[in-house]
Design a protein around this nucleic acid. Structure first.
Lengths: 111, 111
DNA sequence: TGACATACATAGAAATGCTATGTATTGTTA
DNA sequence: TAACAATACATAGCATTTCTATGTATGTCA
């Protein structure tokens, strides 16, 4: 079974910020990195990514700049901002926290 | 900062199923267990929980029955079903999977 | 008898996600 | 050189989801 929408959505931002933390990148490439790093588990549609990138830029977690590839094609690169890095740390903490709670409940029994 | 909505929402179902896996319970009590197990991190409003319980029942992940407490007050208890247990396992896997992917991206660098 | 905790319910407002669609360029292959 | 595939970005607005706000009722305690 594919991963459910809500989880995919909730993980999108930290994933993108993580990728950009490892180096500037552009939309099309991010999708491929996500596919790669997830072992094919996550297959983002491009139409889904761009709105997220725009949202993140609006929140000033990332900044964009245009660049021309050797191919001649123009690409919109994104770099993570200071605020974005803070957000990334925060979001990773949140994930860990909830995973922890979930873990705590595993096999616990009533008093 | 409080945990963001989307994560709270995404974790609600596995949390509820986990709690019920540890023993039958009812709405009001579930809220308290969640608060307890999360160390106060998660404070669910009751109006948020009941719709979720109804949804889970509709999907047949849980079943309900009324019972009278010693106090004399009626409570609607829920028990996890076989399908619910399968769902719980599935959802825990999903969480782990995404946590893993997030982890993989930490400190990775371009080739 | 008033205040508070316990206990459940739901309409529908509000927020959100992303599908569907569009544009354009470069590379390939038939 | 035509057709197709891959690369690359953009967005309107539909569809879905969430849960806030509100309502009801009972038991307990001061």
């Amino acid at each position: 079974m594919a991963l459910p929408k809500d989880l995919v959505a909730a993980s999108a931002t930290p994933l993108i910020l993580s990728i950009l933390h490892n180096g500037d990148s552009y939309g099309y490439d991010i999708i491929q990195q996500v596919r790669e790093f997830s072992g094919g588990e996550l297959e983002w549609a491009d139409g889904m990514l761009y709105p997220i990138l725009h949202r993140l830029e609006k929140k000033q977690f990332i900044e964009s700049y245009w660049e021309k590839a050797e191919s001649g094609r123009k690409r919109k690169y994104y770099r993570i901002s200071k605020g974005g890095l803070e957000e990334l740390v925060q979001q990773r903490n949140n994930w860990e926290k909830l995973s922890q709670i979930l873990q705590n409940l595993k096999g616990k029994h009533h008093v």
